[in-house]
C-alpha cells in the first residue's frame, strides 16, 4: 500500500500520520506531482482558513494536480471544503471537484459556532461507511457543505449538512476520523480497503 498524504500548510498532518501508523501504514508526505499520481491512495488533510490555504495550494501547483488524480482520494475537514467550488470563508474559489458551495453556520437559537464535539451520522450503505455501528464522529468547523446529491452521510447541527460526500474516486469527510476514536479508525481502514 502506497498511501500519499498531501503536504501543505494543513494543521493536522501529524495526527493523520499517527492515525495511519496505528493502522500499520507509513504514509508518504509529499506535494510532488509524480509521487501523488503514483500513489495507490491519497489523503488530503486540513485544518485552517480557506483563503490562505487555497493561495498556498496554488503556489504549489496543487490546484491543478489534485482534481486530476484518479485513485481513491479522501479529503478531511478543511480538505473537504477546499474540494468544493466556493467557500464563504474569505469568499474563496476552491478546487471545484464538487459543484457545491460551502457556507458559514448561522445560529438560529443561540447555537455555538464552531460546531465542536461529537455528533451522530446518518449513513448510506457504502463500503467507506460499513461496520460503523452507532456512527458518531468528532467535528470542529464553522463552515459546512449543504445537503446534496453527493452525500453519503449527513449530520445535524442547526440544520442537516453533509458529513461525507463522494463523486467518482473523490471522497471527503467533514469530521476528523483521525480523532474520532475506534469509529474514525474504522472509516480510515475502510478507505484504505477501497
Amino acid at each position: 500500500m502506497n498511501l500519499a498524504l498531501v503536504k501543505y500548510n494543513a494543521g493536522n498532518t501529524q495526527s493523520v500520520l499517527f492515525a495511519l501508523e496505528r493502522l500499520g501504514i507509513t504514509a508518504q508526505l509529499t506535494n510532488d506531482a509524480d509521487e501523488l499520481m503514483a500513489a495507490d491512495k491519497v489523503i488530503f488533510p486540513g485544518v485552517g482558513e480557506a483563503g490562505n490555504t487555497m493561495k498556498h495550494l496554488k503556489s504549489l501547483g496543487l490546484d491543478v494536480i489534485l482534481p486530476s488524480l484518479k485513485q481513491p482520494f479522501l479529503g478531511i475537514c478543511l480538505g473537504m471544503q477546499l474540494m468544493c467550488r466556493h467557500s464563504e470563508e474569505g469568499d474563496t474559489e476552491c478546487l471545484g471537484i464538487f459543484d457545491l458551495d460551502v457556507r458559514r453556520f448561522v445560529p438560529r437559537n443561540h447555537e455555538k459556532v464552531p460546531h465542536m464535539g461529537w455528533n451522530d451520522l446518518s449513513v448510506a450503505d457504502h463500503p467507506l461507511l460499513r461496520d460503523l455501528s452507532d456512527p458518531h464522529m468528532y467535528f470542529v468547523h464553522s463552515y459546512y457543505v449543504p445537503e446534496s446529491k453527493h452525500s453519503l452521510a449527513s449530520a445535524e447541527y442547526i440544520h442537516p449538512f453533509c458529513a461525507v460526500i463522494n463523486k467518482d474516486n473523490f471522497y471527503a469527510v467533514q469530521f476528523h476520523p483521525e480523532k474520532s476514536g475506534a469509529q474514525g479508525q474504522k472509516l480510515l481502514e475502510n478507505f484504505i480497503g477501497l
Binding site: 499517527f18 496505528r22 468528532y138 474514525g184
Partner: peptide, 8 residues
C-alpha cells in the same frame, strides 16, 4: 500522546 491517543 498524539501517537497513542485517537481522541482530541
Amino acid at each position: 500522546i498524539a501517537r497513542h491517543l485517537n481522541i482530541p
